[in-house]
Structure formats: structure tokens, C-alpha cells
Amino acid sequence: MGSLNEPIRRPLTLDVSGLPSVAFGHRNTTWLANVFYMAIEGMMFALMFAAYFYLRTRSTDWPPGHLPPGLRYGALNALVFVVSTIPAWIVKRRAPDCNRRAVRNGLLVLALFALAATVLRVFEFSALNCRWTDDAYSSTVWVLIGIHSGHLVTELIETLVLLAISFTPKMEGTRLADAAINSDYWYFVVVTGLMVDFLIYGTTRFL
């Protein structure tokens, strides 16, 4: 407190009591953190892609002495990824309307798609036509798809947790915003998944 001789200062006020307490989309702070998180993970993928092409220059054949990875499960999984964006989009669209039922159903379908993608991924590993210990090419292919699988499983678990929350009264404003952000992250998993697919199924056939 100032001394008695000082004039008493009375600041003006800026009343924010009427401001909303939940924000969706880019205004949400977690949305921003999610963007940063995707930047970090995206950078890791970009560097692994760069490593893949760098190692390509060290070898005359590509794949060196292997058959390219089998297409069947990879193609099927790519399809699952593409279609799975529909429930993700529904969750993102319905969450701001506080449509808990639609969000819950969307999360359920999304979780099923994520589960299907995870199961298909196991088969994808079995059709890579190489082991990670064979050579640098094989190591890169395994790590690329391995890192992506880590993201896939993380996203599956996150979706399941949100789904569990959606069956409780705790699925209120902030959690609905989280569900919408979860969809953004799922898009990221889909896009990086398709890029990994392009690398390991595509470039091994024409590069």
C-alpha cells in the first residue's frame, strides 16, 4: 500500500465476467498445443523421410535384394484411414453443438476404425518382406512404420479414454473440445500414415 502522502490511485476496470468459459477450434489453448505437438511429430516424420531418401542414394537397387512390401494389407489399411476421417469429422462437427450422443457415437465408430487399423497394421508388418536386421533399407522401413504404429496406438488409447468419458457426466465443455481436438490429431495420423504408405509401398516400386 502506498504511503499516506500518496494520492490514492484507483485503476479503471475491464470486466471479463461475461466471457465464455469454453472455446472450440483455434481459440482453444489445447488446440494450439496440439498444433505444436503435431509440428514436433511431423518434424520427426520429415526427418525419417529424409533419412529414407538419403539412404536410397547409398544403394544401387531399391529395395536392395528384397521384394517390395506386399500391397494387400497396406492398401486395405489406407482405405480404412481414409474412411475413418468421416467419424472423426462428425465428432469435430458435433462437439461444439453439445450433441453428446453424436459425439459418443462418433468416438465409438472412430475407435473401431482405429482398432481395425491397428489390427491391419500387425498384418502389414508380416508382409514387409524384410526384417529390420537385414540392411539399412529394412531398418528404415520398419522404423517408419513402427513410429507410425506408435502414433496409431496412442490415438486409439486416447479415443478409447474419451469414449469412456463420454459415458459419464464429465463429458462437458472442455472434454467436448478435447474430443474435437482428438479428431484433428486423428487427421494427422491419417495424413502421416498415407505418406508412410506412399514411401514404403509406392517408392519401393518405382524409385
Partner: peptide, 18 residues
């Protein structure tokens, strides 16, 4: 760590690494 722990070859020139 992967090269050391699980036998990948990212940095092993003998197996196409660099």
C-alpha cells in the same frame, strides 16, 4: 540406440547405412 540395441543398420556402411 536402435543400431546398438536391436541390430538395425542406419549407420552401418556395410549394410547400406551411412
Amino acid at each position: 540406440l536402435l543400431d546398438r540395441l536391436v541390430g538395425t543398420h542406419f549407420f552401418n556402411p556395410a549394410e547400406g547405412g551411412d
